[in-house]
Amino acid sequence: MSRIQAAAVAALLLPAATEAQELPVVKLFTTGGTIQSLGKDRLKLAEYREGRIDGATIVEAVPEASRLARIEVEAISAVSSTRMGAEQGLPLARQLMTELERPEVAGAVVTHGTTTLEETAYFLHLTVRTTKPVVVIGSMRPWTAVSRDGPLNFLGAVRTVLTPEAAGKGVLVLLNDTIHSARFVTKRHTYHIETFVSPDVGPLGFADADRVVLYRSPVTRHTADTEFDLDGIEELPQVDVVYGYQEASRAPIDALVKEGAKGIILADGSPAYRNAVLEAQAAGVVVVQGSRKGSGRVVLSDRTAARSEITADNLHPQKARILLRLALTRTTDARELQRIFNEY
């Protein structure tokens, strides 16, 4: 690094003569996932069951972040993302709201496993009433890996929280320098670094080496503008996803109705579903037509309207599930539910 480059980086990272206690606070909530996981050696890129690091280790590994903000660490869980759900999501959302009310807190960073990261991020996007930035991060490579992405994702998230333009844009997801809206982002690859994408819509911006830039703002409802209220909510209604494919049988739908599911998201369909759906609806189960295609909206048609089916817009089935669970805390009216799917 040339002397000028070093000076530029120092200027970027060190606000002029700021005392540590005057720095804004950034909360780091950890839930687990690859970013906190350890492999046997540094070439184990996709195998890492040798324990986990905690949030403090991440903060220590990236001292540049602590020159920008006082990082306060709080552990929510230490699990792989497939074990995450409302049980962790509800307390996480509540703690975020409590902490973000402190005036000295600029925003929050949440670590998460990547497989269901978009689900927790969307849940927070729909429930955390704040205009302060919340950035969910993960990593594609374990903490022990060569060319690990975790540290830079963490630093990018802290820089994004401290970017004034990031306020009011809802929950953000940052991996690989790219800032996505929780509403649109999805995991598109099993292990590459460039994995998180927002199909069709694209990212909102980038945490580039020189500055954090934001080009877009989501216009769907979220965070401060949400109608969903977690007060008094201890659990969420059961909603499951049924996958459509050639010759799919109606058995999964029947089983879910019997089990007491309150809602079902169809990821495409099957002729066998038609009667099963009518019977499920007659039993009071809400059915939402989604798509497994990965991009594009489910178009509202006379046919879906006649079937009292709600359409999932361009939400992926796993995200339509999150929205329906929250919507069912407020209404079971088909028209209201469709309004909610059109607005969020």
Binding site: R216, S217, V219
Partner: peptide, 14 residues
């Protein structure tokens, strides 16, 4: 998107 059923905006430029 200008879909067959509705025009739908997802984001706006900043």
């Amino acid at each position: 998107v200008a879909d067959p059923d509705i025009v739908r905006f997802f984001t706006e430029p900043t």
